[in-house]
Write a protein that binds this DNA or RNA. Structure first.
Lengths: 202, 202
DNA sequence: TCGCATACCAAGCACTTGCTTGGTAATCTA
DNA sequence: TAGATTACCAAGCAAGTGCTTGGTATGCGA
């Protein structure tokens, strides 16, 4: 009867997400330009034209991937800030959730790192510039608080240290291998230790 | 006559290097795959077919760019090691020359960062894997020395910290703008301060 | 059981890609 | 000054690109 208002044969959005995951893995692996719609279709076991039943274009695929990643990351950052702890703990929290995304959103991070720069020039992807600015504001805000509170080094340049830390945590997915012997917890602990000691006043 | 054994109308290798620099800037900017031979030729003021008078293929261009960069970097690292100073000073020296390359070899670094991973799979570019291994040996060697000497933190994992530092210094060329208001010396000082304090024992 | 939406296939179009070919004006060498 | 070399142009080819079109088998709701 009709508790489910709409129900298709396989779950309308399920297949779409499957295809997005396949596309994301390929984009991350080979690069967006080097990945063809035929590559994606092959991996999904369909023909290239059939992708256009689910998506307007190849571009709309990377759009969906990047939008979801940004939304989730901003949400995670917001949760850390909302805890309202001290600069040192908040900084550590941002590092931890960034490295945590390495496990859950590895492909999306790699795509964001590799493709966002030139995509952001197109109006369709202007939200990338907004996200970029928000990320920077969050990180530099915490760093400035820490300097003002006297827990971070006096000579710390928030913008430069933000870039250092950002490059560090967002580049780790390049070499991190899910399921490998190098556990994310160990990476996290070493990174937190070095970065926190690096920014702290001694 | 004839102190110059060979002398062509413009200096044989000069034009080749001009074209390589143009190609490097484009590869760095748009990515190797996304850059067409027509792009390179346009920038050089010639037609695409004319490039093949100077180069066998598009691939041989990126080959020449990466080979030169690796040779120079290994040479620079070797000079730092050869000074035979302590782990802390040697570590600092490696950071400094890496960031120095950001100014002189910016495009090559970006290409190495963005394209080396998948190129290394091809036999033609197997030297990339060798270089990668040498880089790692140099950095982890210094880190291990520092731990053994008691100047670096006891819990330091050389391989992980190498990756952190490597990602940090080699990613900076992504946002560094030559000739901009942000001077390389300032970047260098901040990075050295944070990284050295991050790895040092307190 | 009928009508319809879903999820695909088969074929191919317009365009771009790296690269090749045949030729030519300018310069260097003997 | 004659021949060779250099550095390019003009034209185009084969392969591959994203995407479109028209069609079809399958399952769902009424």
């Amino acid at each position: 009867m009709a508790t489910t208002r709409k129900k298709t044969q396989k779950g309308e959005a399920v297949r779409r997400n499957e295809l997005l995951q396949i596309a994301a893995d390929l984009f991350a692996d080979r690069g967006y330009v080097a990945t063809t719609v035929r590559d994606i279709a092959d991996e999904a076991g369909i023909l290239s034209g059939s992708l256009y039943h689910h998506f307007d274009s190849k571009e709309s695929m990377i759009d969906a991937i990047l939008s979801a990643f940004i939304e989730e990351t901003l949400s995670n950052y917001g949760a850390v800030i909302a805890e309202g702890r001290g600069p040192r703990e908040t900084f550590e929290g941002l590092v931890v959730v960034s490295l945590g995304a390495m496990v859950e959103s590895r492909s999306a991070i790699l795509i964001y790192q590799n493709e966002a720069r030139y995509l952001a020039a197109e109006s369709r992807f202007s939200y990338l510039r907004d996200a970029h600015r928000k990320f920077e504001e969050i990180w530099t805000g915490v760093l400035e608080d820490g300097v003002a509170a006297g827990v971070f080094r006096d000579d710390l340049d928030p913008q430069l240290v933000y870039r250092l830390v950002r490059d560090t945590v967002w580049t780790a997915p390049r070499w991190y291998r899910p399921g490998g012997s190098l556990k994310p917890e160990k990476i996290r602990d070493q990174y937190v230790a070095v970065l926190v000691d690096g920014v702290a006043k001694h």
